[in-house]
């Protein structure tokens, strides 16, 4: 981690009860390609973290390791105190507490919006159908889309679909939410409606890790911004310091590219 040490990675705080995610010297390879290199990161309860970086930098892969959609080859990840390794029981336990919102929504096209939302509570949480429906309607109202409950995902706009996807995650009442470029596949006029929902969530104290290029969102809600490049965490800082006073040349270059318009 020669590059990372010469920039501000921020001293890794020792694991404490407050840390809901601890990533310790984690490495991942795709064949010979070293996608994630010596990642150290801890996330406190209620913390909002924005991960940015050029495409191919490993930012999506990093958050996908946190609910085991991606494996890793060395190091450790603890989520909510549970070691996330090959153990299937542990993986399922982690996935009950960590939900992910995807770039392409990944709603289930053969089910209505309501069925999309009640599926996991009924089958994973073993909730009675009536209770699950009430829960689903509650979250649909929160993302302001309750009137679409009986439609199929294909009948909704992209922004509406992404809000449904967020509500679907919330129905699992997760401790942590991961967002993998949630607005990248949306038409520009729909970005705001999704970001508004995410800002509300952030203000209510949800622990969030969010891969995004929405720098306005980062400035508004992030506690820390992480900049990744070539599989490494290059810079990690509070939003003011990150945007106003970046330390690394790579961060400066990246910021100048995305903020130039």
């Amino acid at each position: 981690m020669t590059v990372a040490t010469e920039t501000t990675t921020g001293a890794v705080p020792p694991p404490s009860k407050e840390d809901v995610i601890v990533v310790n010297k984690m490495n991942k390879w795709y064949g010979n390609f070293h996608v994630l290199q010596d990642i150290d990161l801890s996330v406190r309860k209620g913390e909002r973290i924005v991960v940015c970086g050029p495409s191919g930098s490993g930012k999506s892969t990093l958050i996908r390791t946190m609910n085991r959609l991606e494996t890793y080859q060395s190091g450790e990840i603890y989520v909510d105190g549970i070691l996330l390794g090959d153990d299937v029981k542990n993986i399922e336990a982690v996935r009950r507490e960590v939900c992910m919102v995807f770039q392409h929504f990944n709603l289930f096209p053969h089910m209505t919006v309501l069925e999309n939302l009640t599926l996991a509570p009924i089958w994973v949480r073993k909730m009675p159908k009536k209770e699950a429906t009430e829960l689903a309607m509650h979250y649909l109202e929160r993302v302001r889309i309750a009137e679409q409950a009986l439609k199929y995902p294909g009948q909704l706009s992209g922004g509406q679909q992404q809000r449904v996807a967020i509500a679907r995650s919330l129905c699992m009442q997760p401790k942590i939410m991961l967002f993998d470029e949630p607005t990248s596949a949306l038409d520009p006029e729909m970005v705001k409606e999704v970001l508004d929902v995410m800002v509300e969530l952030a203000k209510e104290g949800m622990t969030m890790l969010c891969v995004t290029h929405e720098m306005g969102f980062a400035k508004e809600v992030a506690d820390r911004v992480i900049f990744m490049d070539a599989g490494q965490i290059v810079e990690m800082a509070g939003p003011h310091e990150f945007f106003d006073n970046p330390k690394s040349d790579r961060t400066k270059l990246f910021l100048s590219q995305i903020l130039s318009h």
Binding site: R68, L69, N106, L107, L119
Partner: peptide, 8 residues
């Protein structure tokens, strides 16, 4: 992936 991430 959506199924996995919902712990199904």
């Amino acid at each position: 992936e959506a199924g996995d991430s919902l712990a199904l």
